Simulated scan of single mutants.
Amino acid sequence: MKSLGSIRRQFSPWNDPQAKPYIRFENITKQFGEFIAVDNLSLSIFEREFFALLGASGCGKSTLLRMLAGFEVPTSGRILLDGQDLHGIPPYRRPVNMMFQSYALFPHMSVEKNIAFGLKQEGMPKAEIDKRVAEMLKLVKLERFATRKPHQLSGGQRQRVALARSLAKRPKVLLLDEPLGALDKKLREETQFELMDLQEELGLTFVVVTHDQEEAMTMADRIAIMDKGEVIQVATPTEIYETPNSRFVADFVGNINLFEGRITGHSDNVVHIATNGGGAQITVENAGAITGNDEVAFAIRPEKIRISSTRPQDAVNALEGEVFDIAYLGDMTVYYVKLDDGQIIRASILNAARVIDDPLTWGDRAWISFRPDAGVVLTR
């Protein structure tokens, strides 16, 4: 059986018709005056899932998280957690904990006292607190830093203290609002995998809010793409990337080339598209249920496109143009090819070898080509 892409783990309760959602947003709307932050949104999240809310600033993702935490109250609709309606339950009574981007550590307290703070507020016996704090320090690998103050730690270490404090009360759900935003790129990448390993080890449900596409694609089992208070698509990272359901999702996640055009023929799940402008013909396999003469967009990722100085003899889809720009990125080279109809296409070529057999440079005539199953047809 072929897979659409690589599989991180064998975990997909959303594909089981008998599986019950652990968190359920039902027709949630949140208004601030005249502004609608979340608009009649419904969404299901499953137990032990690492779920990401991804979108641009102002799309409603943080508002949704804050409503789940109890810091905001829905204008209408309801939120269920493990079958329980959360309406009227204050934040400190909910079996969730929230980790903020700022970490909000107490500067005058040591690492161990920061972690113990919430447990003391709950009146847990001292012996149990000490045991739980020791467990958390070991979990986040900060045993040697227990007596240090936050200002004596690096950004990554402060992030782990905040994580340990959030996990110390053993919540059913951990909410993370832009948790890695304060870290530098390399540390952020390392911490993503630490969070994934930690989530799987603890068996908790994680819900993370981020505007960083790579962060969501790396960590999450599924991603909800949000825009203007609505969910546009919910799917696995591979499905979001390879089979976006709209122009918005295709353009929002990763780099994409879009050919606007009209269906000129279809048969046996194969469609033919005449592109706007130059009228070039594109043949697409596995296009789904497309009716005749529809206005559509053909979306294809840059790495699915080949580039050469001559037309490949085996190419079903091939278009000619001129090399407009080149970006050498080390692991890959990105070519921008201006087609004869004026459209600029981006092609990413992996630098698997040090020597290039068919070198191209600025101003060269070039052919771009791609397989009939390399992209998707979008109707909206």
Score class of each variant (00 low, 15 high):
Y336R: 13
A352E: 10
V323L: 08
A352V: 15
L339P: 01
A353K: 04
D331E: 12
D358N: 15
A353V: 06
I349K: 13
D357I: 08
A327K: 07
D357E: 13
E322S: 13
T361I: 05
T333R: 09
I349A: 11
P359F: 03
L360E: 05
I349H: 10
T361Q: 10
Y335S: 06
F324C: 11
G321N: 03
L339W: 03
K338L: 10
F324L: 11
A366K: 02
D341G: 12
A347V: 13
M332V: 02
S348T: 14
I349D: 03
N351R: 06
Y336G: 01
D364M: 02
T361C: 00
Y328L: 13
I326M: 01
G363I: 12
A353W: 01
G321S: 07
A353D: 11
A352Y: 07
D340E: 14
V334W: 00
Y336M: 08
D340Q: 12
V337E: 04
L339S: 08
D331A: 15
R354H: 08
W362I: 11
I344M: 04
F324Y: 15
K338Q: 15
D357P: 00
A327T: 08
S348R: 13
D358F: 01
R346H: 05
P359R: 01
I326Y: 01
D357G: 07
I344V: 15
V337M: 08
L360Q: 03
R354S: 14
Y335G: 03
I345V: 15
L360K: 08
S348W: 06
I345F: 05
D358K: 06
W362Y: 11
K338A: 14
D340C: 07
I344L: 05
D340Y: 11
D325W: 02
T361L: 02
D340T: 15
I326P: 00
A352Q: 11
G342C: 14
V337L: 12
I326D: 00
G330K: 05
G342T: 12
E322G: 04
D341F: 11
D358P: 00
D358T: 09
M332K: 14
A353G: 00
G321I: 01
A352G: 10
G363T: 09
I326K: 03
R346Q: 15
I344P: 02
G342Y: 11
I356E: 11
G321E: 04
V337Q: 04
Q343M: 14
D357W: 00
F324H: 15
F324S: 15
R365L: 09
D325A: 15
V334R: 12
